[in-house]
């Protein structure tokens, strides 16, 4: 039992959602540390000192050569064994937006049982051809092993990306992820009755990037490693909602996005 899980929130090279990612973990009852990736590479610090790893959103290396690619390489070549060991130790990992792109490009997501760090999917330019910031509705797969989304049904969050289209070379790969319940979060039309997540591509902007099968987030086979394009940390309080001034809000101002981080922290407390 860990009383207060220690979270390594990675920073450096254009990561820019590190402060709010730290804030949500602290709100969820953990202690967050801002760790420059180079301090893991040069040995000043090590992932083994932490219970949770978070790769926040941002524009690492300006998205040049493909979003997440260069930062993914820094991790894949710089701290390969540390990362593999962290996952093999059963510790939770989350990547949000650029962090998700990093996890996919370095092969940690959708991943495999051996944590072999082989890339099997990608995230590429939105079909719209441009970056955009808009609020979307997500639905979570209740059969997924993902520890971050246990008990969640739907959530409103912003997407803020230009390269969020989840793609694989072959549809059978998606069938396999689906079979293993690794497809965790999908874009949905909030006016449809729950559950409504489907493989049928939703129109723009409901699915803001034309992601295959409306995929917004996936986990690895163990359910410990989770990545998603939308930003649950950007909905930590109800006053950040897109339409909150139109809603009756009582005294509870906790935002919908907090549930993800509370799940991660609870898991660490109970299992590590």
């Amino acid at each position: 039992m860990v009383e207060i899980p220690q979270v390594a929130v990675l920073t450096g090279f254009g990561i820019n959602c590190d402060l709010e990612t730290m804030a949500v973990f602290e709100m969820a009852g953990a202690k967050a540390h801002r760790i420059h990736i180079n301090s893991l590479v040069n040995g000043d610090d090590s992932l083994e000192n932490y219970h949770i790893m978070a790769i926040p959103g941002g524009f690492s290396f300006g998205d040049h050569l493909g979003s997440g690619r260069l930062l993914g390489n820094r991790l894949r070549f710089g701290i390969r064994e540390q990362v593999r060991q962290f996952v093999k130790d059963g510790k939770p990992v989350i990547g949000i937006c650029n962090g998700f792109q990093v996890l996919v490009k370095m092969g940690l997501l959708p991943g495999d049982d051996d944590v072999s760090l082989q890339q099997t999917a990608s995230l590429t330019l939105n079909d719209s051809g441009h970056y955009e910031d808009r609020w979307v509705s997500l639905e979570f797969n209740s059969n997924s092993p993902c520890i971050w989304t246990k008990g969640l049904s739907r959530m409103r969050t912003p997407v803020r990306h230009g390269e969020g289209k989840f793609v694989v070379p072959d549809q059978s790969v998606l069938d396999q992820f689906e079979q293993q319940q690794q497809i965790v979060a999908r874009y949905i039309d909030p006016s449809d009755k729950y559950p409504s997540a489907s493989n049928e591509l939703l129109s723009y902007p409901l699915c803001p990037n034309a992601s295959m099968r409306n995929i917004a987030g996936v986990c690895d086979p163990s359910g410990l490693v989770f990545g998603l394009m939308p930003h649950p940390e950007a909905n930590h309080s109800k006053w950040l909602g897109a339409t909150w001034t139109r809603e009756e809000i009582g005294d509870d101002w906790k935002g919908e996005g907090m549930a993800v981080f509370e799940n991660g922290v609870r898991y660490a407390k109970e299992n590590l």
């Binding site: 820019n16 959602c17 402060l19 709010e20 804030a23 949500v24 959103g57 441009h130 970056y131 955009e132 910031d133 808009r134 609020w135 912003p158 803020r160 930003h231 940390e233 950007a234 930590h236 006053w239 950040l240 897109a242 339409t243 001034t245 139109r246």
Partner: peptide, 22 residues
């Protein structure tokens, strides 16, 4: 305006857009 990130830092309360359809 939508292609500007107006919400990074998770602090934006009144945004460039409002209303039922944002």
């Amino acid at each position: 305006v939508r292609s500007y990130d107006h919400e990074v830092i998770a602090q934006t309360v009144i945004k460039p857009f409002c209303g039922v359809n944002h």
